[in-house]
Design a binder for these strands. Sequence first.
DNA 1: GTCTATATGACGATAGAC
DNA 2: GTCTATCGTCATATAGAC
Lengths: 182, 182
Amino acid sequence: MPRKPIARDAVLDAFEALLIEVGERAATLDAVAKRAGVSKGGLLYHFPNKEAMISSLLERMDGLAALDIEAMKAAPEGAAAFFIKSSLWADTPLDRVFVAATRLAEVAHEETRRRFAGIQQQWLDVLAEEVGPEMAKAVRYMGDGLYFNAMLEGGAGDTEVKASARSADVGALLAAVERLRT
Amino acid sequence: MPRKPIARDAVLDAFEALLIEVGERAATLDAVAKRAGVSKGGLLYHFPNKEAMISSLLERMDGLAALDIEAMKAAPEGAAAFFIKSSLWADTPLDRVFVAATRLAEVAHEETRRRFAGIQQQWLDVLAEEVGPEMAKAVRYMGDGLYFNAMLEGGAGDTEVKASARSADVGALLAAVERLRT
DNA sequence: GTCTATATGACGATAGAC
DNA sequence: GTCTATCGTCATATAGAC
């Protein structure tokens, strides 16, 4: 029963971190290899080309998203409140892949966009069960907006200040969700 | 009283269109020149380097955004409803610069991020006057979410279908805004 | 498995003709 | 003002040693 290779994951972690911190353009094979502590040749042994690396990142995203959907369904505070709270950047593994993958989507990477659409639809379905299809949309867009702002900041300066500012906003959004629920 | 140069604007339009349709990475000087119908050398006569082209695009964005803020303040249906409606992609000049500029922000372009932050703050101020600071945030994030989804699609396939799907969502969001206003 | 070359091809930018 | 030609740099990917 062989364990999953470690170096491969380290490379993927480095790719993810660079996408988040410096954007798609600077997440080059050279930079990823250096950050992962391997040579470029070593990197390309694990992933024959860059597209393969992206594919693996999307696999990781789908896996973590599936776990998140389950947690959302089982959340005691309700799916809507869970969704808003988890739309806030918390540096979780899921947050990280999401932001990383968004950097790729912005570069017009079609496969990435398709994956996002699939996950968003699942969220919407769960939300609709709780608050109805109409209000589910309002909640969904609020969460997307929260996420969008986290993503726009990325590794920019003063990230902590902005992140805590958004954290305060979550209270307002949860209050809004309460009012919409009735 | 010399009119503004035409070729310059044509180049800027081409740059904007490419950012929207194919993303930052493919919006190269070669591609922009070709689309604008000039040679690369011709392009670089108007804009000494790529950064200058980006600066001009951001100037265009700020100018159009200022007009939008004024319209928002004067909107008969109220600022919040105006904001939600105008967050929908409608292929207006402002919509176009926004999406184009977002492509740059995603690539960790600091100056672009700063401009966005400035505009968002102005929106929030106007919204707060109408519905109070707390609910202004809810409205703002809904609008951001709407915008985020339009942006994620970009020039992707089947854009029209998705755009009309979001158009239907606006009704739900306006209903939500009504419930939050009271 | 991981490394050091190196090939190949873009991209941004400059020089200088017209 | 707009063009062609070209340079320097950097990115992806390949070949082959260890």
